[in-house]
Simulated scan of single mutants.
Amino acid sequence: MEDLVVPDGVPEAATTVLRTAREPLRQSYYCYEFSTVAVMHSPIAVEIVLHDRIPGAARARCSSSSSRAPRGVS
């Protein structure tokens, strides 16, 4: 677990998410199911970093997803 360090320059929100994901991973030594929680939590940090690094990513995703809405759904 000591090797899992958060690099410098990562947004604070992503750092918090990664630290939160690290604890269930540590506890998965005693309870295997916690590893699933840690693995499913970590992509949130990746999304935060990508939104930070790609300007306008949130607006692009929202506008493209609304054009694919099924008929009758607004």
Results as ranks from 00 to 15, higher is better:
residue 66 S to Y: 06
residue 55 P to D: 13
residue 66 S to N: 06
residue 35 S to L: 11
residue 49 V to E: 01
residue 54 I to L: 07
residue 23 E to Y: 12
residue 16 T to S: 09
residue 29 Y to I: 11
residue 54 I to S: 03
residue 58 A to T: 14
residue 53 R to Q: 12
residue 1 M to G: 09
residue 74 S to R: 15
residue 38 A to D: 05
residue 64 S to Q: 10
residue 1 M to L: 09
residue 33 E to A: 13
residue 54 I to R: 06
residue 19 R to F: 00
residue 41 H to N: 13
residue 27 Q to Y: 12
residue 68 R to F: 07
residue 15 T to N: 06
residue 1 M to Q: 09
residue 33 E to M: 08
residue 22 R to N: 07
residue 51 H to W: 05
residue 69 A to L: 15
residue 72 G to I: 02
residue 56 G to P: 00
residue 11 P to D: 01
residue 3 D to R: 09
residue 62 C to N: 10
residue 9 G to N: 06
residue 67 S to L: 11
residue 22 R to K: 13
residue 54 I to N: 02
residue 38 A to R: 03
residue 64 S to D: 11
residue 21 A to N: 03
residue 47 E to C: 03
residue 24 P to F: 02
residue 60 A to R: 14
residue 45 A to K: 06
residue 25 L to Q: 06
residue 45 A to M: 06
residue 56 G to R: 01
residue 73 V to L: 14
residue 52 D to E: 14
residue 6 V to G: 04
residue 31 C to K: 09
residue 71 R to L: 14
residue 39 V to Y: 03
residue 52 D to Y: 15
residue 7 P to R: 07
residue 27 Q to D: 11
residue 3 D to P: 04
residue 27 Q to N: 10
residue 33 E to N: 12
residue 30 Y to H: 12
residue 69 A to F: 07
residue 48 I to V: 12
residue 72 G to Y: 06
residue 36 T to G: 14
residue 23 E to L: 13
residue 57 A to H: 10
residue 4 L to D: 12
residue 36 T to H: 11
residue 24 P to W: 05
residue 69 A to K: 09
residue 34 F to H: 14
residue 63 S to N: 11
residue 16 T to W: 02
residue 73 V to F: 14
residue 60 A to C: 03
residue 42 S to N: 04
residue 51 H to N: 15
residue 3 D to M: 09
residue 59 R to I: 11
residue 11 P to Q: 00
residue 56 G to A: 01
residue 65 S to K: 12
residue 47 E to V: 07
residue 2 E to W: 02
residue 72 G to C: 03
residue 44 I to V: 15
residue 11 P to S: 02
residue 60 A to M: 09
residue 6 V to E: 09
residue 23 E to A: 12
residue 2 E to D: 15
residue 19 R to T: 04
residue 74 S to F: 13
residue 73 V to N: 05
residue 27 Q to C: 03
residue 9 G to Q: 08
residue 45 A to N: 04
residue 7 P to E: 06
residue 25 L to Y: 13
residue 47 E to P: 01
residue 48 I to E: 02
residue 17 V to F: 02
residue 3 D to K: 08
residue 28 S to L: 04
residue 33 E to I: 08
residue 15 T to L: 04
residue 34 F to T: 04
residue 68 R to D: 13
residue 6 V to R: 05
residue 16 T to R: 11
residue 30 Y to E: 15
residue 28 S to P: 04
residue 43 P to L: 05
residue 39 V to T: 05
residue 36 T to W: 10
residue 50 L to T: 03
residue 4 L to C: 08
residue 12 E to P: 04
residue 37 V to K: 02
residue 70 P to T: 05
residue 16 T to G: 08
residue 17 V to M: 11
residue 13 A to W: 05
residue 19 R to Q: 13
residue 1 M to H: 12
residue 17 V to E: 11
residue 39 V to R: 05
residue 44 I to W: 01
residue 33 E to S: 12
residue 18 L to D: 02
residue 3 D to E: 13
residue 32 Y to C: 06
residue 38 A to E: 04
residue 64 S to H: 08
residue 64 S to P: 00
residue 51 H to P: 01
residue 39 V to K: 05
residue 44 I to M: 08
residue 34 F to Y: 14
residue 63 S to Y: 08
residue 38 A to T: 02
residue 44 I to Y: 00
residue 4 L to G: 03
residue 8 D to C: 08
residue 67 S to C: 04
residue 22 R to V: 07
residue 16 T to P: 00
